[in-house]
Amino acid sequence: MRRKRMRLDGQTAYYHVMSRTVNGEALFGDREREVLRKIIWQVADFSGIRVVTYAVMKNHFHILVEVPAEVDVSDEELVRRYRRLYPKPTPWNPMRAEVLEGHLRDNTLEGMDLRKSLLRRMGDISWMMKTLKQRFTLWFNRSRDRFGPLWCERFKSVLVEGDRWALRTVAAYIDLNAVRAGLVEDPKDYRFCGYAEALGGGRMARAGLSVVDKDLAGYRQTLYGVGAGEKAEKCSISREEAVRVLEEEKGKLPLSVVLRCRVRYFTDGMVLGSRSFVEEHVQTQSSAGKRTRRAHAMSGADWGGLAVGTGLRKGLFE
């Protein structure tokens, strides 16, 4: 099967990507989540992709990423990134960074091939996810004396408009994963998400969330609805109650409450953003031979004009 290169030509692109374990088994304890967290940063740095935020859970992970518009990487930067991913020679990648540096400097035939091969992996979310999942699977299986597949699927992805509101809404949904799972009442207390890491002083996590809000206090307003006519409290609601309000009473819920439910728009949609952005990209997908889809206004809350391109025929919640 031909590998899909997930890029928007000439444009910076944002994707919400996620993957789940086989059968959704809760295989990851603190140690496993910490290793996966570190590998996310390592592989993203190698790929030249910015992690806006992330959440690593017991049986899945989410990442919101920024894919650069252009890939223009110097040989010096290629060596730095290579050393970041391969600090030591391995049986499957025995070349030391110093050897790569020499080939690139002397522009040998091997160096030209290596440069071309490495550049193909830069700024490509498909390569990033493949490398990330393979690397973690290898570590996980060795640490458990285990073999076989770990992930139940390639990965899911939703193209997100680079508008600050769209990005902030998706980021908040990701950072609230542990709250939805009942692990914590406040995402700042969950060490395996971008928001908590940023509050803890993580430089890369802070840089990532600066894409959605320059001030972490401002981002917290999206997490809790402060300043938007909603109560400044840690709201939660059961799926059953949410369905009753939305479907039986035809009502709406506060955005901060809906974000604490498992909303299918964020995981099973295709494109998310303003109606014009969604229409443009679903038409591109349709013209590429996929079945016709269209933009749908997001329902159930005041989403600030967001729409989603999706063929979903089921309800709002998972």
Score class of each variant (00 low, 15 high):
L223H: 03
K188I: 08
G10F: 04
I40R: 01
R203T: 05
R121D: 10
S143Y: 01
A196M: 09
G208Q: 02
V211E: 07
T222N: 05
V212G: 00
I63E: 06
G162W: 04
R293W: 06
W92I: 13
G29Q: 14
F61H: 13
S210Q: 13
Y173L: 10
Y195P: 01
A295T: 07
A217T: 02
E32T: 08
N141E: 07
V67E: 03
R180D: 06
T12D: 05
T267Y: 15
W92H: 06
R5P: 01
S286N: 00
I237E: 05
G200H: 03
A207I: 00
S276E: 15
T292E: 15
R180M: 07
A166Y: 03
G162R: 03
Q11W: 08
D113Y: 07
T90K: 15
A13K: 03
M122G: 00
G311E: 09
V308W: 09
L150Q: 11
R291S: 12
A13H: 05
T90C: 11
V22I: 12
G202E: 02
L8E: 10
D163S: 08
L118K: 10
M1V: 10
W303F: 13
L36M: 11
W303I: 12
V52D: 04
A13G: 14
G48S: 03
M128Q: 14
Y265I: 12
V271F: 01
Y86A: 07
D268Q: 14
L272N: 04
Y265N: 06
E98L: 02
V35Q: 15
A205L: 06
R20H: 03
R168S: 15
S19G: 09
A295K: 08
M57S: 14
A69H: 01
G229F: 10
T12A: 09
D124Q: 13
H103P: 03
R33C: 12
G218P: 11
K252Y: 05
R294Q: 14
Y14D: 00
K290M: 14
N177W: 11
G311K: 09
E98M: 01
R264H: 04
A242W: 06
T310I: 15
G300M: 11
A242K: 03
P254I: 12
R142I: 00
G218F: 02
F140P: 04
G162Y: 02
V271E: 05
G273M: 08
L183C: 01
R83M: 09
K214D: 12
P149G: 05
D186I: 05
V245P: 05
K88R: 13
H16I: 04
L253A: 09
A13Y: 03
A172N: 04
E32P: 05
L209F: 09
V22W: 07
G300F: 06
A297T: 13
S19W: 02
L259Q: 10
F140M: 09
A217P: 00
L150M: 14
H60V: 11
R293G: 15
S286M: 00
L272K: 12
W92Q: 08
Y190T: 01
R191D: 02
